[in-house]
Design a protein around this nucleic acid. Sequence first.
DNA 1: TTCTCTTATCGTATATTTACGATATAAGAT
DNA 2: ATCTTATATCGTAAATATACGATAAGAGAA
Lengths: 117, 117
Amino acid sequence: MALNKKQEFSELQNQIATFAKALSHPARVAILEKLADCNKCICGDIVEVMPLSQSTVSQHLKELKNAGLIQGIIEGASSCYCINWENLEKELETLNNIFSQLKTKNDSVICCVVKEQ
Amino acid sequence: MALNKKQEFSELQNQIATFAKALSHPARVAILEKLADCNKCICGDIVEVMPLSQSTVSQHLKELKNAGLIQGIIEGASSCYCINWENLEKELETLNNIFSQLKTKNDSVICCVVKEQ
DNA sequence: TTCTCTTATCGTATATTTACGATATAAGAT
DNA sequence: ATCTTATATCGTAAATATACGATAAGAGAA
């Protein structure tokens, strides 16, 4: 079957999973690094430094855009991409917050003791 | 085709992608929340609160374990799972570090200007 | 207009992920 | 020894992701 059970989880759980999924391929991490690095952010420049075809890079760009982590604008014949820092930092904060909350909870609880081996 | 190109990316890019992939399904986020919350961490307790079958939950637990985010020990007939905070926090820090470094770089650069629309 | 250049999308093949039921395994109870 | 209980693994079906070449679409040059 492999039915989609994602809607059975909370909004927040899905939000974190969606953000993480956007970062779950090294090519997309590499694209974000390149976008932060280059001062023109032209699609072709990204393709040039990636070990992937133009169409595959375009697909990864689309996924990052859908996740809200980057923005793209058309500049004549080419497209210019930028990191959407507002969203990216918001997502990062959500991720950090949830784990620091969990840590606090976990510290006050006697959980299974893992013996050193 | 769909050849695996992951080894063409850097160690760090792959490390981040692997961590993100572990968090890229809401069920695995839910498991981490449950592990932080319950004070017994028995596999069956997790299965009970999840909208998934025992075998599927077991599979997700295995992935979290492979990513180093949780640890499991056998306690008689059942298994007890715990969050591996040391690894989890290390991975989170790596993620935070890379983006704060990128942000610093990006701030000093004239990137494509996105017009407000 | 026609040619070229750039990027997005389509079609498609393959790989991986997700999900479940069935089964194996191992511990504890009877 | 047999039964039960708990969990991991196997087998498998379906969904999704990854990757590429081909093609479409739109801009700018000739």
